[in-house]
């Protein structure tokens, strides 16, 4: 029983770590978005307000996949549904 518990706990921790790999995608995506926004502000400085607003919304939408991974990691770490299944 102790061994099974240990295995489940270790697997949950590893799973949480793996789930956080999902942070890579939004990072790259938001980097692209911000880079393009900087470019377009450089080209047309008078449109900076609108571009910034649109960029923030785009970043927030791109971020959601990372947030899903984060929520999965949180559930694995702090609620741990699998330990009750033993």
């Amino acid at each position: 029983m102790e061994l099974a518990r240990a295995i489940v706990l270790a697997a949950s921790a590893i799973g949480a770590g793996l789930a956080m790999i999902s942070g890579v995608g939004p990072g790259i995506g938001e980097g692209y978005a911000v880079g393009k926004a900087c470019e377009s502000i450089g080209r047309q400085p008078e449109s900076s307000g609108k571009v910034t607003k649109t960029m923030f919304i785009g970043c927030a939408v791109a971020e959601s996949t990372g947030i899903y991974g984060f929520v999965v990691a949180l559930i694995l770490l702090f609620i741990n549904p699998f330990i009750n299944m033993l």
């Binding site: 927030a60 971020e63 959601s64 947030i67 899903y68 984060f70 929520v71 949180l74």
Partner: peptide
């Protein structure tokens, strides 16, 4: 989830 995740994070 977006709002929750950001603040909880």
């Amino acid at each position: 989830f977006r709002h929750f995740g950001n603040v909880a994070g």
